[in-house]
Amino acid sequence: MHAMQYGITLPADYDMEIIRRRVASKGHLLDNWQGLGLKAYLIRERGVHGSPVNEYAPFYLWNTVAGMNAFLWGGPFQGIADDFGRPPVRQWTVLAREGAASPRVRVAVLRRQQVPEGVRLKDLAADVTRETERSAGEDGAVLAAAAVDTSRWELIHFSLRENDTPKAEGEVYEVLHMSVPGPLPLPLDARS
């Protein structure tokens, strides 16, 4: 499973209703996308939940690389590139996931951290799994995932929540729409 996100920072006076209308009219296009685990259509608004910027920043969990590649190379991503320019697309390998998406999701939280030097990678994976299980069990949380970018040794913690004011640290996003084409794979440690 792979995680992916791109962010489009918009001007401070940008009318975020434009993004809301865009998602309302196009969000359904990925509701049945082959290979997609979930897409959370995320925005941050300047001054809301402490955000310093207006941003459109969808977050994806991909079940297959083929699905991700079909999206990026000749798929709907071309519309983003045409309308906003081609943003950098970050990709991470998912280490742990707990929970499932819910139609009642209101906010997402994304926290980034560097993997400390000297940490044994096997220990890191076990710690990340425990942290993901803990995050998924927090009040209002329905899904938690953790992933790593090994080119930068950056770890991300992502969660979807039903409550409007999560206590978790990190960037807080409003969820405008969820595309969940099929069931997410079993949590990584449950596979045999």
Rank of each mutant, 00 (worst) to 15 (best):
V172K: 08
A3K: 00
K26L: 15
W153G: 00
T93N: 05
A40L: 11
Q113V: 08
T165V: 14
R46W: 03
E45K: 07
V94W: 02
L10T: 08
A108R: 01
S192E: 11
A108D: 09
G170F: 09
S135G: 02
A141Y: 01
S151L: 12
G182R: 09
R161N: 12
E117I: 07
T165W: 08
Y56Q: 02
D164A: 13
V48N: 03
L72H: 04
W33M: 06
L42D: 06
E17Y: 00
D15M: 06
G50K: 08
G137C: 07
G182P: 11
V172F: 04
Q5L: 04
F84W: 15
A81Y: 05
E154I: 13
H157M: 11
R152E: 15
P183S: 05
D83I: 00
N54C: 11
Q5T: 14
V23Q: 06
A3F: 13
N163I: 12
A40W: 03
K39M: 08
Y41S: 14
E117G: 11
L42N: 12
D189H: 15
A144K: 12
L143Q: 04
E154Q: 14
F158A: 14
E133S: 07
R90W: 08
N163S: 09
A125R: 14
G47Q: 05
G7W: 04
L29G: 00
R152C: 02
